[in-house]
């Protein structure tokens, strides 16, 4: 999966510590907060006050895109959320939950429980959304809706992916803009003044707002 490779490359290039929010453009920060509210259950997101959150940033290079990383504890779980412009990868530290150490027949239930705790209860409620494979092992990936193309989702709730990577439980949520086909440029997220929604629009020629110019 390309985003995993991007994160690996970014980690090798290094993340910078972020003391405050000043180093992140206001637009990107507003988007990050918006998605935190959208994806995560009340009190579980990386911007909920009264919880120490360590933040890091990777600014786009030729090899890896813009990424924000939030590290914090929720309940008994230690989380790292790596956020790109179009996705949020939630990594549950193995120290706080070792899924592979559980008996095989308890792994799916444990994953469902964590998903229901962290995310807004739209898809993961009831614990029947993930289509689990027969065995959950290292490298196993599964989804709530594997048939849907992530670039064409009508809403993020339509597809939440998860898996075991490096022994850790990970969730992958797509920050989908429902009007858009595809994703925005991941290398241009933390660039000052970057916006994709105020796009230039074709105006229909039959309505004029100003007076006609007099011809000489």
């Amino acid at each position: 999966m390309k985003w995993f490779d991007d994160i690996k490359t970014a980690e090798s290039e290094g993340f910078d510590e972020l003391d405050g929010h000043a180093d992140v453009p206001g637009q990107a920060l507003a988007e990050s907060r918006h998605w935190a509210r959208t994806l995560f259950a009340q009190g579980k997101g990386p911007y909920d006050a009264a919880r120490p959150v360590r933040r890091k940033v990777h600014r786009a290079t030729k090899a890896a895109p813009d990424l924000l990383r939030h590290e914090y504890d929720v309940d008994d779980l230690h989380l790292s959320i790596v956020e790109g412009r179009s996705f949020a990868l939630v990594i549950v530290s193995r120290d706080s939950l070792d899924v592979l150490a559980l008996p095989e027949d308890e792994r799916a239930a444990a994953i469902t429980r964590v998903a229901a705790t962290l995310f807004h209860p739209v898809c993961v409620s009831g614990g029947v959304c993930f289509r689990f494979p027969e065995r959950i092992d290292e490298g196993t990936f599964f989804s709530t809706n594997p048939d849907l193309e992530p670039r064409l989702l009508g809403a993020w709730q339509d597809r939440l992916d998860a898996g075991i990577r490096g022994g850790e439980l990970v969730f992958l949520a797509y920050k989908r803009l429902p009007w858009m086909a595809g994703f925005a440029n991941p290398f241009a997220w933390l660039r000052e003044g970057e916006r994709i929604d105020q796009k230039p629009r074709f105006r229909f020629p039959f309505r004029r707002s100003g007076a006609k110019r007099k011809r000489r």
Partner: peptide, 22 residues
């Protein structure tokens, strides 16, 4: 083409792909 509405060196933006118009 680059991803939708990528700002190009000349200041313009690349063509964007859409699912609908609201």
């Amino acid at each position: 083409y680059p991803p939708s509405h990528t700002r190009l060196p000349d200041g313009k933006v690349s063509p964007g792909l859409n699912r609908y118009e609201a």
